[in-house]
Design a protein around this nucleic acid. Structure first.
Lengths: 109, 109
DNA sequence: ACAACACATAAGTATTTGCTTATACGTTGT
DNA sequence: ACAACGTATAAGCAAATACTTATGTGTTGT
């Protein structure tokens, strides 16, 4: 059987690596081609591509081909499962976040 | 030089492992001794202790010795750095979270 | 058509990781 | 005091991971 890795697993795993997180953070500054990212970090182009693949499979980024370039950008809703996970354990947060949650619930009605 | 691992790194790394996340989630149900956790999961006691050590170093749980037992519980503010990290990239979230943020700001006034 | 470019994939390797068993440490009850 | 218990640490090992270089796959300009 193939490993039953959930999306949640993939997200946590994708963000666990500092290089990958750095690439993700860099993309929040705007779309960038693999070439650009390779220039920004001190790792090889294949390494960048591999990181991007992991981020893509986690739903955190998206690639768009344009000519010979592939431009990657942050997937806006990609972090949602992570937010949901945290929200699920909101009882252990600060009081501030607790209040915030309650407001949200009232808002939904 | 020794790896200059930040707390943020440790948190992401700690939560990356499904077993460790399961232990953390289990602790949100209330305080538990190592023995209890060992009973709940299908791994050895040393494995549990090792996971707990990683979680503790990440500031996610806290241990309290009582007799020969050590009771672990979730550190309420432990997830804060993770929340902060996500919040920093909130511009890429769903609209729902955007609304939530705005509500919070109004609330603070 | 073809050379150069941009990227992805393959294959190999050193390191890290998550587990195990064995053992040390600390506490308690009798 | 000492045996049993609960936990932490040590040592070792198999698997996963993050990189590398080499090569494959598309695309463009001339």
């Amino acid at each position: 059987m193939t490993s039953a890795t959930t999306l949640e697993d993939k997200i946590f795993l994708a963000l666990a690596d500092p290089s990958r997180r750095a690439i993700f953070e860099s993309l929040t500054g705007g779309e960038a081609a693999v070439k650009d990212l390779t220039a920004r970090f001190d790792i090889s182009q294949p390494a960048v591509s591999q990181h991007l693949a992991a981020l893509r499979e986690a739903g955190l980024v998206q690639g768009r081909r344009e000519g010979r370039h592939v431009y990657y950008r942050v997937e806006p809703r990609g972090l949602t499962p992570l937010v949901d996970w945290i929200t699920h354990y909101r009882a252990f947060w600060t009081e501030r976040v607790g209040k915030l949650e309650r407001l949200l619930e009232r808002m939904d009605k």
